[in-house]
Simulated assay, not measured.
Amino acid sequence: MAFQPIYDAVEQRVWGYEALVRGMGGEGAFEVLSKVSPDQMYRFDQDCRTKAIELAARLFPAEEELKLSINFLPKAVYEPAACLRATLNAARRFSFPMSSIMFEFTENEEVRDTGHLTNIITEYRRHGFTTALDDFGAGYAGLGLLADFQPDLIKIDMKLIRGIDTSPARRAVVDGILAIAGDLDITVLAEGIETEQEFEVLKESGIRLFQGYWFAKPAFEELPQVRAA
């Protein structure tokens, strides 16, 4: 696992860290997942959750309230309550607060059964976990998926972020997302920030949570130094 910080521009501190799957040679999540067969996907998903919690319990400063963001694959979850057992056991074993765990699912993964995904989110919230929709604005379902259920947080995809400081069209789209999120009481995070100009434009628009290389690149099994903004 590598960890990349999520920065809170209002509090001017790290809000949390996303745990990212990496190969032993530094391979990214897509390359790693491409080698996992369908019959191994459930075990792989469970092992990743446990490893992320174990590392976070060791690396996160005890005096700071930090979120741990874990990615999960809806198609790897056959029954929400049963699939949470390893997560709950890991949180207890490593004394990691369940209220500090956030689960992300990506819009880039086609969701054919929205009822199943709704059941997952309902069960996760019942245990106090935060839920997030990753890559918002660049996937299969877009606003239709958001209309079916509302996660606690959405992460605006970097394709909408890139060059937003010079693109009125991108600013208009992001402003629209912010308005909808505000009406639905959903927190917005901008991911993929690579320049100060992108950060400043988005901060002025009202976004407070940020993630991207401009703040810090992911660090393998350690917490990276974060650029103060």
Rank of each mutant, 00 (worst) to 15 (best):
L178H: 02
R93A: 15
V21C: 12
I70T: 03
A2R: 02
R126V: 01
A76N: 14
R93C: 10
L133R: 04
P38I: 11
A179D: 15
L143G: 04
A76P: 06
T195Q: 08
I6N: 02
G192T: 08
G144V: 04
F60Y: 12
P97I: 10
A138T: 04
I180V: 15
R85I: 15
G144P: 08
K159E: 14
I101K: 01
F3N: 05
A91I: 04
G206D: 07
W15T: 00
D39I: 09
D47V: 07
E11S: 15
I101N: 00
G182Q: 01
R125V: 03
L223G: 05
A29N: 01
F94K: 00
F215I: 11
Y213V: 10
L117M: 10
D39T: 08
A132T: 06
E221V: 00
E222P: 00
G115C: 04
I207H: 07
G144W: 04
A219L: 15
S95C: 08
V36Q: 03
E109M: 10
S95A: 13
I70A: 05
G139N: 03
L153R: 07
P80W: 06
E54S: 11
G28P: 03
S69A: 13
Q211E: 10
T114L: 14
G212L: 08
E54F: 11
A52Q: 05
F44L: 12
F136P: 00
E79W: 08
I161G: 06
A86G: 03
F60M: 02
P80I: 09
F199N: 01
P5W: 09
R93D: 12
L66E: 04
E204R: 15
P218D: 10
I156D: 06
Y140P: 09
S37F: 07
A190S: 09
L202A: 11
V10W: 03
A56E: 00
H127T: 01
L146P: 01
F94C: 01
I101G: 05
A76T: 07
L88M: 14
E27I: 09
A19F: 01
A2C: 08
A90V: 11
K67P: 00
T106C: 13
K203E: 11
R125P: 04
M41N: 00
Y140W: 15
M1L: 12
T106V: 13
G115F: 09
A90N: 07
K155Y: 03
K35Q: 15
V226F: 09
S99D: 12
E79F: 10
R125H: 11
A91M: 02
G25L: 07
M98F: 01
L55T: 00
E196C: 06
V14F: 04
N119Y: 05
T166D: 13
Q40D: 10
S37E: 11
D45I: 09
A86H: 14
E54R: 12
G176F: 04
K67L: 12
V10R: 15
D183T: 07
D8W: 06
V32N: 05
Y124H: 07
I156V: 14
E27L: 07
G25W: 02
C48Q: 09
L84T: 03
I6P: 05
Y42K: 13
I70W: 04
R227H: 13
Q225K: 12
N119L: 14
C48E: 06
G115M: 09
D175F: 00
Q225L: 14
